[in-house]
Each structure stands twice: as C-alpha cells, then as structure tokens.
Design a binder for these strands. Sequence first.
DNA 1: CCCTGATTCGC
DNA 2: GCGAATCAGG
Length: 168
Amino acid sequence: MGWTDERVELLKKLWAEGLSASQIAGRLGGVTRNAVIGKVHRLGLSGRATSSRSSAPRPRRAHAPRQNRAPSLTFGTRGNVALKPSYEAEYEPAPAPVTELVIPLHERATILTLKESMCRWPIGDPTEEDFHFCGRKKEGPVPYCEHHARMAYQPVQARRREKRFASG
DNA sequence: CCCTGATTCGC
DNA sequence: GCGAATCAGG
C-alpha cells in the first residue's frame, strides 16, 4: 500500500490536528507508525514535538533489516462485531447504557488503535463512521475502564430490588 | 511498561 | 521513496 495523494493529504491533516503517529497509522490503515513518521519527515512536516532531542548525536547506528522481516500480514475483514458486555452467573446485564461519555477526538480508539490496556466499551453505532471505543486505561482482567466496568458488571442485588414482590 | 518522535540505511 | 529496527526521551 503506497502513499497516494489522498493518503498524504489525510496524513497532513491528521498530523496538523495533533494526532500521534500511531494514531494516524491506525486511521490510515496498512501502515505502521514508523511509516507515518518516515513520511512525515520526508514531507518536511517534522518538528512538532519536543526539540530536546539534539542532546545526543546519534553515532550513526540504527541499521536496517536484511530482507527477513516482511510480516506479510493478511487481513480478513469479516464482520463488524462490537464487543458487548458479557456477564457471569453472578451478574445481570445493565440496562444497556448507550453512552454518557464523550471521548475527545484524539483519544478515541478504533479497532486498530485499541490496545490490550485500553477500555473496549463500544460507543456509538458500529455501522456509523464515528463508532469507536472508550479507549481509556483499564486495569486487570476486566476489559473495561473502572467507569464502564461498573456499568457492565452490575451486582445482582442492586437489580433485584425492582423484581421483589410480596408473597408471604 | 506504556507511549512519543528521530534517525539510519537495506531494500 | 519506503519503513523496520533502533535510538532517545517522557
């Protein structure tokens, strides 16, 4: 996948908006953050971040691979499966809260930018363009941030109250 | 450890 | 020109 005019324009735009190289790589797809950074430099767009990097003049190292790498990735884009909260026996589903949070544009996580450490609570309609994941930091085995974990794993007791009835 | 951009250099 | 590997820093 090469750098078409469209791709370069999108790169320029996103870079100007302040997105990180990895974020841009995720949006473009088919490229790594290294590729984005390399392109940015070739385009002469660099010089956005800290400039305190000239402290140590690189001793001219950093080599390139032989020809051995080439991961040769094969993407099988099949369905658009949004992760919905799953529940264990001790829990019952929360009333499917659509979303009460607005994630800043530059923090939104797509399927491409989602990391293992990021909250994968789906936000929006998967068929829509602006569909994204929460993306905030999560902890432990729970796939959500603290906030969304509370929504996903609502204690049974808390929900049972409404089902109670007088029968004896 | 997570991330960021910067740089070199085989291809 | 491209970008993985590597480096240097937060």
